[in-house]
Design a protein around this nucleic acid. Sequence first.
DNA 1: CTGCTCAACTTGTTGGTACAAGCTGATGCA
DNA 2: TGCATCAGCTTGTACCAACAAGTTGAGCAG
Lengths: 270, 270
Amino acid sequence: MYQQVERVSHDGCMDKQPKYRQVADALRREIDSGTYAPGARLPSESDLMKRFDASRNTVRNGLNLLVSQGLISSSQGLGYEVRSHEVFKLNASRFENLDFPQNGDAYNTDVTSVGRRPHQTFRVEMSPASEDVAERLKIDAGSTTVLRFCHRFVDDVPWSTQATWYPGWLVEQSPRLSQPGDIEEGTTRYLTAHGIEQVGYFDEIATRMPTPEEARLLEIGAGVPVLLWTRTGYSEDRPIRCTVTTFRGDLNQMTYEIGSLSGREENEPQ
Amino acid sequence: MYQQVERVSHDGCMDKQPKYRQVADALRREIDSGTYAPGARLPSESDLMKRFDASRNTVRNGLNLLVSQGLISSSQGLGYEVRSHEVFKLNASRFENLDFPQNGDAYNTDVTSVGRRPHQTFRVEMSPASEDVAERLKIDAGSTTVLRFCHRFVDDVPWSTQATWYPGWLVEQSPRLSQPGDIEEGTTRYLTAHGIEQVGYFDEIATRMPTPEEARLLEIGAGVPVLLWTRTGYSEDRPIRCTVTTFRGDLNQMTYEIGSLSGREENEPQ
DNA sequence: CTGCTCAACTTGTTGGTACAAGCTGATGCA
DNA sequence: TGCATCAGCTTGTACCAACAAGTTGAGCAG
């Protein structure tokens, strides 16, 4: 039986925090200090019950706090595990470099160049433009667009989902866009070859907690936010595409280089 | 009225989900569809207990799911409220425009220009460089830097915290950096006047759940991620500053314009 | 040795209770 | 009228119990 009186009597000073928070804070400190390294398993709930002289619910409240902060994850039958957080940095200002276009698909190139194994699944469909997409592509909401959707993995871990909408007028000029299957030389390159040159883009970056659908596709539990990257590409005349990429926030960062960075070396800081 | 018995009796169809998740999903749908608008109060726990024929713990589990997804927030004595999510867009590629420097502080200008009221508190201190900062500024870890820290509000709502480190060598040339108090014309402008011109920068953008300290400063509850923006500024020769900004992820987005965007209008899409 | 079963662990879900603590409006006294 | 108090609402914290469900390894049967 939990005794409020007892706790006050021999805890003395720093007792303002509720007990479940003390559990979370103690474990957080031990994770930060390396007592429990990334990948390591925490003690089981019943162990923690004994250690903190708390009920199972209280211990679970504390653990759930850490789960919702993305520090640990739990799986039924296995226990709680400290999440690792090595990140993949995507150089967005070089990702489709306007001055030095890369060969092939930009994502494949980027992932392979750091010695990891890319893998993706494709889907192509015709769909009416949503309000958000229509506004960015400067077309009427509901008008036909081609949506190319892909689900990307790195070393078989779900990494990101990417949806690109092309306006209907553009697809007439570049029919392969609406065909299923990869465009091996890269869509930007393919479009350039068909007289559609992307001369600029507008990026929007936001973060939020994943929807249930996103959590399923990216295999993220509670406590891991997603990073939303919306890139609208422009030709000389008008918008030519709108790409929405949803990243696992714990595994990805984005970077931009603007102006002259004479002192900076490659791949640094890591 | 929701009937558990009914659900169990013709078990067959859509019953795989645990009850607390059904509660969360039902409420999420009602929030999405506008039944509960942003700012509105949800029914109390005991109302939901009756409606879903569930125990208080089960209802709370469902509500906590929505809290941890940032859809709602709770306050003791008041109830659960649907969070609003109008965002402030920061144009990072124009924020300290290299070609057209703005007058005064960039943040104040940006906030005022959309008709909102900025407010900030300042703190200046000398501090040894952490490993992260040292790496970015290309100085030795532990060497002296000047840290200018500010805590920013918009219409009295906590908005972001910003910490800028300047390397020791630079402060010798531009002494006002280490003095407390605002630099009214903007630090970038002040540095330019002292022969230190920022000709490029490197941005890193990440997201994660807030630390307890961040949650306190930004007044965000569980379920709202932060957006981390690290900008390292370069002169012709070397790095001259490193700025780490921590935004409330629910209230902020960042945007970049790269290349030519001839078709794009200002302040759009909203 | 192989392969299967099962006990013994783990977390997940759901029910219950009790009291603390924050908020609000009604009541009643000065 | 004005202000203090308090009842009655809300959520927060903490405890208990029971069973479901996933994982693992020991141990037995073939």
